[in-house]
Amino acid sequence: MTRRDATVLLVLSAIWGASFLFIKLGVDAFEPSVVAFGRLFFGSLLLLALLPGRGGLAPLRGHLRPIVVLGALNNAIPFWLLGFAETRLDSGLTAVIQAAAPIFTVVLASRIDASQRVAGARLVGVAVGFVGVVLLVGVQSGGELIAAVAVLGVAFCYAASVLFAGVTMRGIPALQVSLGQLTCAAVLISPFALLQRPDSAPPAKAWLAVVALGVLGSGIAYLLYFALIASAGASRAILVTYLVPAFALVYGTVFLDETVTAVALAGLALVLTGTALATGLARLRPASVPS
């Protein structure tokens, strides 16, 4: 990974870490489907403003079906699930559970491509990460357990979508891919948002949170994300999940007075250690034999 890619990864992590804070502020006043639609709508508007002089929508010609699938898998479904989860879970914990996405990526990649078969240290990494996920989810109960499982659904969607995008969107500019998927996702979720629109005017804080989600968390972030996939590859791009929980925990603690528990930190450590091994970022070294 180049220095430029590393910088993009860091900025993207800071933006998406803040997204969990904005979601929490949004679902305090709006239904999750409305927050998801607002995020998609404002993100699409930003990208649409950048489109003139950059090839228009021509690069998407003949790619409508994969763009719709990507919009559902990478935006509509996970955005709604995240909003639902944060009505029951702290924003920081939600980000920590979502950190399981690279584990799912490794497992799914091995099913798609036989050369990516999980074995050795990578298999150990998947197992360690799985233990971390079980620890994080297992301590929840009632509605919180359902919310934690919903976040696992988000992680699975993101893992599947990054692999899908790497195969179907190759060679298409990041701007067009981002605009296409956000617009399709907005259309898909709009009927639910319309049915669940608020009866009274929500506070300005909630509106600003939704706008920030769209402009930063969707518009700018997805431009960076797909550019990173194109430059560094899907397996490197998903590593954004390493840094997002740390930013989200800090934001949640500072701005929402959320408590960082020992269980959350232990689960995060296991998930990230497992991810490092499963993706090959870290390797198990055999113990040296004294001579």
Rank of each mutant, 00 (worst) to 15 (best):
V133E: 04
A76K: 02
V68A: 14
G280E: 11
A95W: 01
S141A: 14
T279K: 04
A18N: 13
P102V: 06
A72N: 03
A278C: 07
L12F: 10
F41H: 08
V126W: 00
S200T: 15
C184H: 12
G83A: 00
L228S: 13
L195K: 14
F130V: 08
Y222D: 02
H63N: 08
G217R: 05
V167I: 14
P191G: 11
S231V: 05
S33H: 07
G267I: 06
L93E: 03
A276K: 06
S161L: 08
V118Q: 00
S161A: 15
L50I: 09
S19C: 09
E86P: 01
G214K: 00
F130C: 08
L136Q: 03
G180T: 11
F30R: 03
R170L: 07
Q116F: 02
L73S: 04
L281E: 15
R122T: 07
T7F: 13
L45A: 13
L179G: 05
A101Y: 05
L40H: 00
P32W: 00
C184P: 10
L93Y: 04
F84T: 03
A209Q: 02
V289R: 15
P290D: 11
A99C: 02
I67S: 08
A212F: 00
V151L: 01
A58G: 08
A72I: 09
T273P: 02
L256N: 07
V177P: 02
G143A: 13
V250E: 01
W16P: 03
V260W: 11
T183Q: 02
L45K: 07
R122S: 13
V139P: 04
L270M: 15
V68P: 06
F41A: 14
G55V: 06
W16T: 01
L175W: 05
A29P: 03
V211R: 03
L64G: 11
G56Y: 07
G26C: 07
A227K: 12
I23R: 00
K205G: 12
R122W: 09
A148M: 00
V211A: 01
L10Q: 11
L284P: 09
R4Q: 13
G233C: 04
E86D: 03
A36D: 06
P245C: 11
V254E: 05
L179D: 05
P66L: 04
Q116G: 01
S91V: 09
A232H: 11
L82T: 09
T241I: 07
I15M: 10
T94A: 15
G153S: 03
A276S: 15
F164N: 01
V149K: 04
I172E: 05
G26Q: 03
G280N: 06
A18M: 15
Y222H: 01
I172A: 09
V131Y: 08
Y251W: 14
L25D: 02
A147M: 06
G120V: 11
V211I: 12
A127L: 15
G92Y: 09
A201I: 14
F247Q: 13
F255M: 03
V271A: 06
L188R: 02
L152S: 01
Y158D: 06
I67V: 14
L265P: 00
V134K: 05
R122V: 13
P173A: 10
G55D: 07
G62M: 04
Q116K: 14
L270T: 12
T168D: 13
G43L: 07
T279M: 07
T94F: 00
A99D: 00
P32V: 02
A204D: 05
F164Q: 01
A204Y: 10
Y242V: 06
V68F: 12
S33Q: 11
R54W: 09
G252I: 06
G138W: 08
F42L: 09
